[in-house]
Simulated scan of single mutants.
Amino acid sequence: MRITVFRKLMANEFGDVRADMLARDHVFSSLGGRTVDQALEAGQEPKEIWRAVCDAFEVPFERR
């Protein structure tokens, strides 16, 4: 998955403002205690990050 696709999924699920806030501020234990932005900068795969976000926020299966 490309980062642009990941960002679009985030915006579609949470809205532009909340998606940006979550990516910047929310720390995920499943991402090694990193935020989304930190995980992306560290080279973690966007698909893995999307799964972590979906699990943490209980995104329904059909939108994963």
Score class of each variant (00 low, 15 high):
Phe14Asp: 05
Val59Met: 06
Trp50Lys: 01
Lys8Arg: 15
Met21Asp: 08
Glu45Leu: 13
Phe57Ala: 12
Asn12Tyr: 04
Ala39Gly: 07
Val17Ile: 07
Glu58Cys: 11
Phe28Tyr: 12
Gln44Ser: 04
Val36Arg: 10
Pro46Ile: 02
Cys54Asp: 06
Leu22Trp: 11
Asn12Asp: 06
Pro60Ser: 01
Glu48Gly: 04
Met10Gln: 11
Ile49Glu: 03
Pro46Glu: 09
Glu45Cys: 11
Gly15Pro: 00
Gly33Asn: 09
Met10His: 09
Ile49His: 03
Gly43Asp: 03
Ser30Gly: 15
Ser30Thr: 14
Lys8Asp: 14
Ala39Trp: 00
Met1Asp: 08
Arg7Asp: 15
Ala23Thr: 12
Glu58Lys: 12
Glu45Phe: 03
Ala52Asp: 05
Glu48Arg: 03
Leu22Ile: 12
Trp50Phe: 04
Gln44Phe: 03
Pro60Arg: 00
Arg24Pro: 01
Arg7Trp: 14
Arg34Met: 13
Thr4Trp: 03
Asp25Gly: 13
Thr35Ser: 12
Gly33Thr: 00
Asp37Met: 10
Leu40Arg: 02
Ala23Gly: 14
Glu41Met: 03
His26Trp: 14
Val17Leu: 05
Glu41Gly: 05
Leu22Thr: 00
Met10Phe: 13
Glu48Cys: 07
Val53Pro: 02
Glu58Gln: 13
Arg64Ser: 00
Ala39Thr: 00
Ser29Met: 13
Glu48Ala: 05
Ala42Ser: 05
Asp55Met: 12
Lys8Asn: 14
Arg64Gly: 01
Ile3Asn: 08
Ser29Lys: 12
Arg51Tyr: 06
Thr35Phe: 02
Thr35Ala: 08
Leu22Asp: 01
Leu22Tyr: 12
Phe61Asn: 11
Pro46Thr: 05
Asn12Gly: 11
Asp25Arg: 09
Arg24Leu: 11
Asp37Cys: 07
Phe57His: 15
Asp20Met: 03
Leu40Ile: 01
Leu9Tyr: 15
Val53His: 09
Cys54Val: 01
Cys54Lys: 01
Arg64His: 02
Arg18Asp: 09
Leu31Ile: 07
Val17Pro: 07
Phe28Ala: 05
Arg51Lys: 06
Val5Gln: 14
Ala11Met: 12
Lys47Ala: 08
Asp55Cys: 11
Lys8Tyr: 08
Ile49Val: 10
Met21Gln: 08
His26Phe: 14
Gln38Cys: 05
Glu13Val: 09
Asp55Pro: 04
Phe14Val: 06
Phe28Pro: 15
Arg51Phe: 05
Val53Met: 08
Val36Ser: 04
Leu22Arg: 09
Cys54Ile: 02
Ser29Gln: 15
